[in-house]
Amino acid sequence: MKKKLVIAIYLFITIFILDQVVKYGFANLAWDVDGPYMSLKLAYNYGVAFSMFSFLEHNLKYIQLLIIVIATIYLLKNKDVFDEYYLSIALLYAGGLSNILDRFTYGGVVDYFYWHYGFEFAIFNIADVIINMAVALIIYKQIKQIREEKKQKNIKS
């Protein structure tokens, strides 16, 4: 458990700092670049995915912090969940807290990846990709666990 916690903390710190450095560059150093397929262009998201809940703009950061606090309390009471999903949890916390910090620092989440070849896609950032990777890892582990349980059940039958 302790080794997993140390790994999770290092992973969290690394991703969080990397994401904040890149966002600082776009927000303060004009790192915008136009490309034929994808551009790097500063945009602020005042909602969540695809700007949903942007009407909660000023309160959203507090709602998200409350969710983080509740999740942390849950993990403290259910250490086995952390033990099983520590990598995904580190990724979720890094991406989520980085985006929440943006709301306090810049007033909205700093986004910059803009796909525009063939169709226009929502503008997103590294933290968004990290959060999606964490969710994919959780789903993968869940599917793997269900298959293993079915296999064990068939062996016993």
Rank of each mutant, 00 (worst) to 15 (best):
A90L: 07
A71N: 05
I89A: 00
T72M: 12
L101T: 09
L66W: 00
I70G: 09
L92H: 06
A71I: 00
A90S: 13
L92S: 11
K77Q: 15
L76Y: 14
I100C: 03
V81Q: 10
I63C: 05
L65P: 01
I73F: 14
L91V: 03
K61C: 03
Y74F: 15
D83H: 13
L60Q: 06
N78L: 08
Y93W: 10
Y86S: 07
N99C: 12
S88W: 02
S88K: 00
I89F: 10
V69Q: 08
Y74Q: 14
A90Y: 07
V69W: 09
I73G: 11
Y85H: 12
I73A: 14
N59F: 10
N99M: 13
I67R: 01
L65N: 09
E84T: 13
L75S: 08
L66R: 00
L66M: 09
I70N: 02
G96L: 09
K61H: 01
A71C: 15
L66S: 14
D80I: 12
K79I: 10
I73T: 12
N59H: 05
A71E: 04
L92R: 05
I68M: 13
A90M: 06
V69T: 12
K77Y: 13
G96T: 08
K79H: 09
T72W: 11
N78T: 10
D102M: 08
L97Y: 01
Q64A: 13
I73K: 09
L60V: 06
K77F: 15
L87R: 01
S98G: 15
L92D: 04
N78D: 11
A71Q: 04
S88G: 14
A94E: 11
A90N: 05
I100T: 04
F82N: 11
Y86C: 07
K79W: 08
S98Q: 07
Y86T: 07
N99V: 09
K61N: 03
Y85S: 00
L75T: 04
Y86K: 05
K61T: 06
T72K: 07
L97G: 02
D80C: 00
V69F: 15
F82A: 10
G96S: 12
L65S: 11
Y62S: 01
L87W: 03
Y93K: 00
L66Q: 00
T72F: 15
D83P: 03
L101E: 01
N78P: 10
L101P: 01
L66P: 00
V81M: 08
N78C: 09
Y74H: 13
Y74P: 11
G95D: 10
A71H: 00
N59I: 06
L87A: 00
L76E: 13
L65D: 02
I70K: 00
I63N: 07
G96K: 12
G96E: 11
I63H: 03
Y93E: 01
N59T: 03
I100M: 01
V81G: 01
I100L: 03
S98Y: 07
A71F: 14
S88Q: 07
N78Y: 13
D83M: 02
Y74W: 15
I68R: 00
Y62R: 02
L97D: 05
A90C: 03
D102Q: 08
I63Q: 05
V69S: 08
